[in-house]
Amino acid sequence: MAERLLTVDTLSAFHGEAQVLRDVSIDVSVGEVVTLVGRNGAGKTTLLRSIMGLHKNTRGSIALDGTTLDGKSADKRARLGIGWVPDDRGIYATLTVEENLSLPPVVDKDASWSLDRIYEQFPVLRERRDFPGTKLSGGEQQMLAMARPLRAGSRLLLLDEPSEGLAPVIVSQIGQIIRDIRSQGVAVLLVEQNVKFASTVADRHNLLAQGEVVESLDNDAFQSRTTELLQHLGM
């Protein structure tokens, strides 16, 4: 059994009066890709934002590598090794591609990818290194967004719908990148609506409905029961 990296324990989250997450417990181990699958509004993004420390109205606890994150600011959490890839990709228009990559401080020298290594993996980013970040195509922006925490040397990536709005050929490239990242020993918590895509990259799945985890299962079980599960979620 691989070493457990992220532990979310009975987490509840609120938007004002409304409860968006109910006693959610999930975990991700080193070198593992775990998904959160569910409809819009199921609370997936809120869960990622709570782990990142951006959504503060929560109850329950979150720990990284045995260290509690409760009460820690977002920038502190990032420096502990959590890399956030938001659903809008979070690319800066006023920063060049290379500045976008260099902005986050390196959190782990050994795990950090050099710019050269990133450019080798993503040659298009080298070509466009001096362009404003938002001048890239959607797929290139997604690659940039995923390369950014790799350069910082993050241990855990929070990926929010990386396949959204991308052509199938780009989606399969993104899938390959996730498998590569995983083989480097980086843990990934992946939020997805694209179930087919999720089943090509993930080890385990958590099905989220109305703020609750209604099912947790491994990828084999997920694949054999996909239709039934999706009906259950109303997707």
């Binding site: 951006l54 977002a74 920038d75 990032a78 800066y92 006023t94 986050p104 401080p105 959190v107």
Partner: peptide, 14 residues
Amino acid sequence: ASTEDAERTRALGI
């Protein structure tokens, strides 16, 4: 970066 989006910049470790 902070001028463009302060929250996101914090989440990137700054």
